[in-house]
Amino acid sequence: MKRKPVLRVSTKLLTPFILLFALYVQFHGDYGPGGGFQAGVIFASAFILYSLVFGLETAQRVLPAAIRRILLGSGVLIYAGTGIASILMGGNFLNYSVLAHDPLSGQHLGIMLIEFGVGTTVFAAMVIIFFTFAGQYRRGGPDGN
């Protein structure tokens, strides 16, 4: 990919905007269409685009394997942890009303936390799946072991 200046430059220009748009979708999901599922996928697509143009190794240096795996698990843990927190504060599992001083802001906080958890896991899962498939090809495919 050394000789494709248009692709390289436009990828570099687009990547920050894709990431920003993903964050917008993540935190604006309460008001318009969007939420953790979409945001995670869009965030992952920025990394996928980056690795398609600049190579898998470069993208994996940005996001090492250990961090990818930690993110994969931590999203589910944030989600379940929000549920546990609402038990500890005297409500039922995943009843966010008790999380803050009044029910509405509790709901707001709870929804934001669990959407963040959803986004993290979806993002990590998509990136891991893509990197794993792409990594197979780099090793010369299934026949070249």
Binding site: D30, Y31, P33, Q107
Partner: peptide, 17 residues
């Protein structure tokens, strides 16, 4: 009850958490 304008988000995250 939930206070978010997007009903899909409030069902997804709160009612059907």
């Amino acid at each position: 009850e939930v206070g978010t304008p997007n009903i899909v988000t409030s069902v997804l995250a709160s009612y059907r958490g």
